[in-house]
Design a protein around this nucleic acid. Structure first.
Lengths: 210, 210
DNA sequence: ACCCTACAGTAACATTTGTTACAGATGGTT
DNA sequence: AACCATCTGTAACAAATGTTACTGTAGGGT
């Protein structure tokens, strides 16, 4: 039995299911920045995240990007589940935000376990629930917040995810994820610096008080 | 057996499940504009939509609204499913866009049927799948489109939902659903009229060529 | 130390969206 | 017909965001 499996999912799944996951699942470690799924890809395995964080991005026809949300320890990707079941292509891109470890489960098991284990069903339903709420949160941000508020929220979230006051991004990278231009981000960051909320450096930003 | 149940869900569910739904479900008819669920409400039944359309709205803390998407014939509300399972309050408002008929199923059946019927599981998963994709579509619109494009998309969708070239809304109502101001909508509608795409009237808009 | 590239700063301007403040039109009611 | 509430049109302005164009600078590579 993979130790991390028991540690992270032991409270959710009964031993029999844990054993099944252990048998058919494969342990995987990916480096920061690793592109796990791209738009249009067919998904062949369900990821169970053990450590690290995965960022999920949306892209429009012109190649413009937008950060949707992060997956963290104990999460699985509901959109992936969704793709598995429907045998449809991925509508999103998944990139490792930090170094991450996960267990990949072949999609065939999905339906089998859904009938067999109540705990698996609960896990899947709970994942969907969580994901829908994250999507609502994302919609709230883009629809109701102005760019300065979105930027602050973004910085907080990045700091939380990486457990670090230092945000390792250029202004251009932030602009991509918030779907705006580099100049706008520079402008707003400079305002935040003048307010004493951040300290700007080349290639990184230190969060002081946001 | 309620005739509409067989007609609308017969291809999805086996007879045994249809019978169960028939026994515990209650047939319901709601008028246009009927508020079915409000933000903060606890949900006590799962709706299976037979006819008509339900609009799902999001609201922020300041009371600002935003139309998320419509539910149509054969749909169920995944957010409702989600609420049922998690026993959490609704994060959205649901209002009948047109007169609608539906079957309400008590939430207790949800878990029971999920274990018992593969077809029910498929239906629930498919609903989540569909709903996540609708949410992505909504995010695309708000994030990547300008207001004039969003308005055109909105008018098309309304026309499709009501199967009518006449949109029965004031400019103010449209502004609420797109989360902008009445003046902006008036301005953009007038542009569309000058382009020959719509014909404006008091309280309604005729779609000509969008 | 010098060079070079990528990054950051910033002004000036354009565009889009939001706001204020009215005027005018419409359609129902008395 | 006169009245009235509500809806629509629109100008003028404000604010937010996007774009262009350029300068300066940090830091790695040689």
């Amino acid at each position: 039995m993979i130790k991390e499996l028991k540690d992270n999912y032991g409270h959710l799944f009964e031993d029999e299911l844990l054993n099944e996951i252990n048998q058919v699942g494969t342990f995987k470690e990916v480096p920061e920045g690793f592109k796990m799924i791209d738009i249009g890809n067919y998904v062949k395995a369900i990821p169970l995240l053990i450590s690290g964080a995965i960022k999920i991005l949306r892209q429009d026809n012109d190649g413009d990007e937008l950060l949707l949300y992060f997956l963290e320890k104990g999460d699985t990707c509901a959109i992936t589940l969704s793709c598995c079941l429907g045998q449809t292509k991925s509508e999103v891109r998944a990139i490792a935000e930090t170094k991450a470890t996960l267990i990949m489960v072949p999609i065939q098991k999905m339906e089998e376990w859904s009938g067999k284990y109540k705990s698996w069903r609960s896990f899947v339903f709970e994942s969907y629930h969580h994901r829908l709420n994250e999507m609502l949160e994302t919609i709230d941000s883009i629809a109701f917040l102005k760019m300065d508020e979105r930027l602050i929220k973004y910085l907080k979230e990045k700091a939380r995810i990486s457990q670090d006051k230092i945000i390792q991004h250029t202004h251009q990278e932030i602009a991509y994820e918030l779907h705006t231009s580099r100049e706008v981000i520079s402008r707003l960051l400079k305002k935040l610096e003048n307010l004493g909320k951040v300290k700007l450096h080349r290639n990184y930003i230190v969060i002081k008080d946001v």
